[in-house]
Computed example of a mutant assay.
Amino acid sequence: MPELFSKMRSWFSLLPPFYQNNIMEIIILAVIVYEFLLWIKNTRAFELLKGLVVIGAFIIVAWFFKLTSIMWIIEKLSTAFIIAAVVIFQPEIRKALGQLGSRNFITSLFPNANVEDSSVNTINEIVKASFEMAKKKTGALIVIQQGQSLNDIAETGILINGIVSSALLINIFEKNTPLHDGAVVIVGDRVVSATCYLPLSETEISKDYGTRHRAALGISENYDAVTVVVSEETGRVSVAINGILKRAIDAESLRAMLPVAESNNDSDSATRFRFLRGSRKERVK
């Protein structure tokens, strides 16, 4: 045993000195790597990353077998690859930088920060309006703000600033009315604006879905908002969140997908959002 301990001391003596600052650096780097991998998983960068892994494996094989001509070409094109990666990942990089300074990121560090959440009554009104419009095949786009501000989206529409109600939503999306085209933005318990323009997703989706569904996916890829879509062609109700489009079969399934401020039995104080998360494999094709 003494010999074993002496050998272990000799092994540890070969390691560089370890200080308290190193522990902090390891924790910070672990958090950064974890958040980066989580970001990769929840964006289209995950699919693109698979291609980069294949290219990386090819480079390793070329280096291992000393394929000098191929390695020379790769070395000369390395700068172009970096620029191409920045161009390809431009939407994801822009989204990540936007989230870095968003209220959602700040509130994750300070849990007691006030967030304007939608009440249960507001969610019920949205659910009621959605299925009323679905019966009449009235197209609708309802965007519910979460952590990230939607001010830039709301500014593209017409100011409403009214309390959310099923009657108001149905009247807004009524066909041949001035406000029916575009999306409605809801913040907390208020309809902030209508006829808002949403960024369209470039993701391939089924031909059964139209421009509204592509717009719902687009806003969910750039913001953490939850969007309810009512199809004008089929009357189907769907929800877009985190770049995923899910079908809501009935009112209960829709209600389960929407963010709501939960309150205690004896208090009306709002707590954190609860919202549906899904795998990238669940994207509607």
Rank of each mutant, 00 (worst) to 15 (best):
F58V: 14
S269M: 06
N112Q: 01
K76V: 13
R272G: 12
L200R: 00
I32M: 13
A194Q: 04
S130H: 11
S78F: 12
Q146T: 08
S118F: 03
E92Q: 14
A248K: 02
A154S: 12
I170D: 04
P16H: 14
N222H: 03
V87K: 08
S119I: 03
T177H: 04
I83H: 06
F81W: 05
F110N: 11
R212W: 10
L48H: 13
L258K: 13
A85G: 11
I142R: 09
Y34A: 12
G188Q: 04
E155N: 10
E204H: 08
A261M: 07
L97T: 06
L49D: 01
A30W: 11
E204S: 07
Y209A: 02
I144Y: 10
L141D: 13
Q145C: 05
V53G: 01
E202F: 11
D266A: 00
Y19H: 11
M257L: 15
L141G: 08
F12T: 15
S10Q: 12
A154D: 05
V164E: 07
V260N: 06
N264T: 10
R280C: 00
D266Y: 00
K175P: 09
V229C: 06
V239Q: 14
H213S: 15
L254G: 10
Q99K: 04
T79V: 12
S13K: 13
F131N: 15
F89S: 14
I163P: 00
D117T: 00
V229D: 08
R9C: 10
N265E: 05
F65N: 11
S206C: 05
L48D: 07
L52S: 03
E132N: 12
R255L: 15
K135Y: 00
A96E: 12
E116R: 09
V185W: 03
P16V: 15
I205M: 10
K246T: 13
S231F: 00
N171I: 00
K281G: 03
R255N: 13
A85E: 12
E75R: 05
N222M: 07
E47V: 02
T138N: 10
K41G: 03
R283A: 04
M8K: 03
V230A: 03
A225W: 03
V86R: 02
L29H: 04
I70S: 09
E75L: 09
N265W: 01
S108A: 05
S130L: 09
S78Y: 09
Y34V: 13
A30S: 15
F65I: 15
W63P: 01
S206Y: 04
F64H: 02
Q145D: 07
Y197M: 08
K66N: 06
I244F: 07
F105G: 01
G182N: 08
I23P: 00
E92Y: 06
I32V: 14
V143S: 08
T43F: 00
G243T: 02
V143L: 07
S119V: 01
I23V: 08
E262S: 04
S253V: 11
T138Q: 14
Y223P: 02
D268S: 04
D181T: 15
V86T: 06
I170R: 14
S267I: 03
S118L: 03
E282T: 05
V87T: 11
A62L: 08
I23W: 09
S253L: 01
K95D: 14
S102R: 12
S10M: 07
